[in-house]
Write a protein that binds this DNA or RNA. Structure first.
Lengths: 158, 158
DNA sequence: CTATGTGCAAATCCTTTGCAATCCA
DNA sequence: TGGATTGCAAAGGATTTGCACATAG
């Protein structure tokens, strides 16, 4: 933890920015919730517990800063707000995918990539230089699949 | 074209909705711009050329309706607005991916799926019932890759 | 001292909603 | 006629911005 924070501090300093106390709080919240896919608002509330006078704008500005420095990256699960994950988009090997249950909203991470073949193909066929990718599966998680079996013969159409 | 419109009309009628003149205009714009990934606002302007008194709200409501009926589906390229493609999300075999150039914004479609293996794996390992997926590659298109080679030794960091 | 960071409130952008008018079966 | 559809304006929610103050090197 300490170590990661120091790395971030260095990274920021290299770009003429500082890891201020406010920003460190935000970073810590992100680090302590690596698995949570927090939104800006959620981060704001968590930070507020430690630094009650922080402003929402600062959270947004800091998140943007961290994204620019490739310290975090944002994902969009289609619910109208961005969510943030620690780890840069460009970092080699960080890739994982997301399973999004459209019934209960649960997000599960898939820690396999398996996209090399496809990437190779895209690179060749389209002359496209791939920097990052984002793969989301929409459907029903285990629990919801089970529950739905119990409700069989339900409603049709919208 | 005519045929597709009829199919849509039927689909809607089956769900107690109608293909009103307004909605047909919107549908036509979508059909005539299959490859364009239009936003609601863009659709609105195109429809306005034919039916000047259409309202933006109607466009939004119609798009939502079409999505509900799986006539179209929306995609999010991360630019803060939804975009719409003709064709339902659940339709078997419609799947294609998108290449998003983060320099010039160009969107290219990749008409290969190649995700079966991964889907199978996800289904088994996570007990997740996959209904749809969305895969986006971010990077640089051919033109931008070329242009960037000419600007070598450019600026670093943000 | 000067640049950077920050809180607050106002502004923006996309999208949704309330409501009265309109349309069509 | 009565429920569905629509336009307009207002509301909403997430994010950004302007500005004056605070802070740090």
């Amino acid at each position: 933890m300490r170590e990661i924070i120091n790395q971030v501090e260095e990274k920021l300093r290299a770009g003429d920015s500082k890891l201020t106390p406010r920003r460190e709080h935000i970073l810590r919240v992100l680090l302590e919730n690596k698995d949570k896919h927090l939104s800006a608002e959620e981060i704001y509330h968590l930070v507020k517990q430690r630094a009650p006078d922080v402003g929402l704008a600062t959270v947004y500005r800091t998140l943007e800063l961290f994204c620019d420095f490739d310290i975090i990256h944002s994902i969009d699960f289609g619910d109208g707000r961005k969510r943030y994950e620690f780890g840069g988009a460009q970092e080699k090997g960080h890739h994982h995918h997301h399973l999004i249950c459209t019934r209960c909203g649960k997000i599960t991470e898939v820690n396999e990539d398996l996209l090399e073949e496809l990437e190779l193909r895209v690179t060749k066929l389209y002359d496209f230089t791939i920097v990052d990718h984002e793969l989301k599966f929409f459907g029903y998680c285990r629990d919801c699949t089970a529950k739905m079996k119990g409700e069989e013969g339900g409603l049709a159409v919208p």
